[in-house]
Design a protein around this nucleic acid. Structure first.
Lengths: 113, 113
DNA sequence: GTAACTACTTACCTGCGGGTAACTACTAAC
DNA sequence: GTTAGTAGTTACCCGCAGGTAAGTAGTTAC
């Protein structure tokens, strides 16, 4: 096994670790939505059009466990909950930007203009 | 709906279109492997350690349909097939780089060093 | 007391993403 | 004729990601 193959396999391992955390239909969209500012549960549900409360709740929990977002409960009346990005979550901004850039590129090339 | 919300929703739409194409356990790893140079079926199978021939074949087909990779058949003996990135596939390099950068970042922060 | 808003939770179900194992087809080497 | 290497295909199966619908719980407004 030469140097090149090693670095290929190493990168493949890293990519698979990362993908395990950010994969799925909703996680990147949720983080993306939060790059526009802290949001409450209902706001996220309105922004991310097709998501069900169950999926939103479930994915928010997973993102919190992976230290990507923070859940803050306010004892206002009625109770409100605010979700925000941690530094680790904010560090996904560049990655998300590239997803968007590539997404635009893809749309032009394949979906056709 | 204000300007900010509109741009948020627009970006969410783009991200979801892009994710539809690159999502899944194997697609980004396959493209990543091909950024190291054109590879044959067997080479990919050896590099991407846990992938089964069925999944590799299936995902290669999907990537080809989305104009991300090209399949070239050589009439050598025995027949060999080479997979390579299209310009659209190559344009994923930055995105993949960011996945790797974030992956390292994540590993340090959460998995712990 | 009932509707409406907050933020979920719970139960149930379905489809498909992904895994395993075996099989195919062709050629070369021995 | 049997093994090995090329590149897959096919059949079968399973678990979970994700969807639907309804319920919960607390407060405010009417």
């Amino acid at each position: 096994m030469n140097q090149k193959t090693q670095s290929c396999q190493q990168k493949l391992r890293i990519s698979r670790d990362a993908l395990e955390v950010i994969q799925g239909k909703w996680r990147m969209p949720i983080v993306l939505a939060l790059t526009f500012g802290n949001k409450r549960f209902g706001e996220l549900q309105r922004d991310i059009v097709d998501i069900s409360p169950k999926m939103l709740s479930q994915e928010l929990k997973a993102l919190e466990e992976n230290k990507i977002i923070t859940r803050t409960l306010y004892d206002s009346m009625p109770v409100t909950v605010e979700y925000s990005l941690t530094p680790l979550g904010k560090s996904m901004k560049k990655l998300l930007d590239e997803v968007l850039i590539w997404g635009e590129h893809f749309r032009k090339e394949v979906i056709g203009k």
